[in-house]
């Protein structure tokens, strides 16, 4: 009886680990998609209304409940746009399951932010959005490839360990 309960617990624990990995992959994809949407909205704010960045980040961030944009708006007067966005991305990376490569990529959008005229600012944001698009494709592919592997692998590892212990 105890053995059966222990075996179940081991399998459940390993399954949970596998599920966590899968969830992180899914969350990363949805986060990148969210950031893509937010940067597109930022582009629209800038191109249509010439809204200053602090106001634009605060408005978009609070509208979509994005803590990264809200934090960026808070820190922007003190640090400047570029530094504020990079800092906010780093601070909220774990919340959005973003990896180092994602931070680097999203930081590319921060470089030169607020430092050039409208035409170049929009070009820069377009470039950043296209980079995020590519990253989303890669992240989705990775999720498809690895999520089943993680899940099955974790369950099987749990079963194997249980058998070994028995």
């Amino acid at each position: 009886m105890y053995k059966a309960a222990g075996a179940l617990m081991i399998i459940a624990a390993f399954s949970f680990v596998g599920y966590s990995f899968c969830r992180a992959l899914g969350r990363r994809c949805s986060s990148l998609e969210e950031f893509r949407k937010l940067f597109s909205l930022l582009r629209s704010e800038i191109s249509l209304k010439l809204t200053p960045l602090e106001k634009a980040f605060a408005a978009i961030g609070s509208q979509y409940g994005n803590s990264c944009f809200i934090l960026c708006a808070d820190k922007l007067p003190e640090l400047g746009a570029q530094e504020a966005l990079i800092n906010a991305l780093k601070s909220t990376a774990s919340e959005y399951m973003l990896r180092g490569e994602d931070i680097e990529l999203l930081s590319a959008a921060a470089v030169g932010l607020g430092k050039c005229d409208l035409k170049n600012q929009l070009k820069h944001l377009d470039y950043a959005v296209s980079l995020i698009d590519n990253s989303i494709v890669r992240a989705k592919k990775e999720r498809e490839e690895k999520s089943r592997l993680f899940m099955n692998g974790a369950v099987l590892s749990g079963v194997m360990l249980t058998l070994m212990l028995l």
Partner: peptide
């Protein structure tokens, strides 16, 4: 210039 343009040069172009 950063302070004057609220870190948004384009908004004052």
């Amino acid at each position: 210039v950063d302070i004057l343009t609220l870190s948004s040069l384009y908004s004052a172009q």
